[in-house]
């Protein structure tokens, strides 16, 4: 508890300031902030809300972990969209061309292929930075554009479900649809496995210790015998892999097909990125932050229905939290320096 407090305090400050700014925005646009915030809480965690929060949280947690693993090593993976979409379309392609596969094998293959494609997409910017000196931050981002474009082309021209008139693929065969266990989707179990693996790597494995030390000081890590550029490849591939699997989880859930833009418009990737930043790459924190931001998004939609305050308020709050947090952390570090 005592160890948590110093890292939690700037986050609470950031949250407070963000809420105040949000309230100011609402007052200016003539709404009642207390009512709106109340609706966010009721809408996201109330009896009608928590299921929606959970179903949004699944992809957001996936994307948060996809960012947090590289971020732990000091690398910013902005390529989440390409990795997510690449994984999603791969799962659909597997479902389309291996439609006869029996049930567990079908999903294992679809998710496995999505993982592989996601990993490759994450790997490319890493190898470009290592071998060619192209900044990973930029290349990972720019790489998403052609991947999203090619995917969109596949959906609209190659895999199109001509019957609906919408830009979407045909419904996946039943064997490729993620089963429900009562009210709970199977995707949750896949996600729990991913969360567990990431946490084990981070907290228990020597490799996780190395990743953390690399994030704190790259040169120190290399000096101590860690092959830092090889680690860059691994964490970026692992991040891409998680994003790819997440993409597969989205398309194998209802409506069991790839709808063009459906992985981009809800901004899973960017919400996840902000969650990972809020948690400062701590995987447990990233999961919590992802759930928090998902609740904020779902609650935002409820708020919009009830109070006419646009749901984008949630995105504003998220971004403001990160900006204030970055400032607060910097301020803390300077205070510490002065004392020392």
């Amino acid at each position: 508890m005592r160890a948590w407090w110093p890292s939690l305090r700037p986050m609470l400050i950031a949250l407070g300031i963000a809420l105040a700014i949000g309230a100011a925005l609402m007052l200016i646009s003539g709404s009642n902030p207390l009512q709106a915030y109340g609706q966010i809480i009721v809408g996201s965690l109330g009896p009608n809300g928590w299921a929606a929060t959970l179903s949004l949280a699944i992809p957001v947690i996936g994307c948060a972990l996809a960012v947090s693993l590289p971020l732990r090593a000091g690398l910013i993976n902005l390529g989440g969209e390409g990795q997510l979409v690449g994984g999603g379309i791969t799962a659909v392609v597997v479902g389309t061309y291996f439609a006869d596969l029996p049930f567990p094998l079908s999903l294992i293959l679809a998710i496995g292929a999505a993982a592989l494609v996601g990993a490759v997409i994450g790997f490319v910017p890493a190898i470009m930075e290592n071998k060619l000196g192209v900044p990973l931050l930029i290349s990972s981002l720019l790489l998403s554009y052609p991947i999203v474009a090619v995917t969109s082309f596949l959906v609209r021209f190659v895999l199109l479900d001509k019957g609906t008139g919408l830009p979407q693929t045909e419904t996946l065969p039943a064997a490729f649809q993620m089963p429900q266990f009562g009210k709970v989707t199977g995707a949750l179990f896949v996600l729990i496995v991913i969360i567990a693996v990431v946490i084990v790597i981070d907290r228990m494995l020597p490799a996780g210790f190395e990743i953390r030390m690399t994030g704190l000081n790259r040169k120190f890590s290399g000096y101590s015998g860690v092959a830092v550029s090889r680690m860059t490849l691994w964490v970026m591939a692992a991040g891409g892999m998680i994003a790819g699997v997440t993409g597969a989880l989205v398309v194998t859930a209802f409506p069991f097909r790839f709808v063009d833009g459906a992985l981009i418009t809800p901004a899973y990737v960017w919400t996840g990125l902000l969650a990972a930043m809020l948690a400062r790459a701590n995987p447990v924190g990233a999961v919590v932050a992802a759930v928090f931001f998902s609740a904020l998004q779902v609650g935002g939609a409820a708020m919009e229905r009830e109070t006419f305050v646009p749901r984008e308020l949630s995105s504003i709050l998220q971004a403001v939290i990160i900006i204030v947090l970055a400032g607060a952390i910097a301020l803390n570090a300077r205070k510490k320096q002065k004392v020392a």
Binding site: F209, R212, M213, L216, N217, K219, F220, S221, Y223, S224, G225
Partner: peptide
């Protein structure tokens, strides 16, 4: 400070590295 240690990591972590 630049190579021999990670100044933002704990003394314990610095000693464990390697």
């Amino acid at each position: 400070r630049g190579v021999g240690s990670a100044v933002t990591a704990s003394v314990s972590d610095n000693l464990a590295m390697g």
